[in-house]
Design a protein around this nucleic acid. Sequence first.
DNA 1: ATGGTATGTCGTATATTTGCGTCATAGCGA
DNA 2: TCGCTATGACGCAAATATACGACATACCAT
Lengths: 116, 116
Amino acid sequence: MTHAKTTEFTQQQQDLARVAKALAHPARVAIIQLLAAKRTCISGDIAAELPLSRTTVSQHLQELKALGLIRGEIDGLTVCYCLNYELLQQVRQQFAGFFGEVAIAPASGPAEACAC
Amino acid sequence: MTHAKTTEFTQQQQDLARVAKALAHPARVAIIQLLAAKRTCISGDIAAELPLSRTTVSQHLQELKALGLIRGEIDGLTVCYCLNYELLQQVRQQFAGFFGEVAIAPASGPAEACAC
DNA sequence: ATGGTATGTCGTATATTTGCGTCATAGCGA
DNA sequence: TCGCTATGACGCAAATATACGACATACCAT
């Protein structure tokens, strides 16, 4: 009985893990914050603000874009990256739901054995 | 000017990335949800519910414990794993703050060039 | 003590992530 | 047209994450 594998992970769990992974690197957190703070969202400008090479920043941008969290529109020579606020709101709800389900102390639940 | 590295990542960004990484795997999301749902939080029981070997689940538990999100108390032969609700609340606030800063559409900001 | 059970640790193999240099592409201006 | 600049794509190396079997430990019941 030591390993049973009765259930698979739910879609909800996989979705949450996917978006969490997008935030699992300081560079990507910083990129999102930068895009939220500044109006000028040019890829090159972003790279200049981060302690990473332009190539690496571009990769992180692609990852965020693949998830749909940011959008990139070509504007002549430069590329304009912007946040996808609709999806961000959705993700915010996703996290809020998770923490609402998980972060509330038992308080007045049924008695249990575990005392920790 | 292509790579400048003017700033480092802030502590806030690193902290958020660290907790996000903890949620970046479906197994760890599932573990937290299990601990929140059930009162019986024995390591073996947890492993039986997941499509992973007991060893792997134990590793994920160690990762969560290292971050402080869960606590493990030895109870005779078995180990009682419980959520650290205080820290979870803190993390919830951390995410709420991040999304509050980032997920709100500009609406009536100063005019900008980018139309996407 | 002895055996059985529940758990963590270690070593290892594979997959993924991260970071960056180099190249290719594509637009802009002289 | 001819460079020049901004940017993504490709390939590679190092680091990290993931998964698991085999072993070690510790506890309980007999």
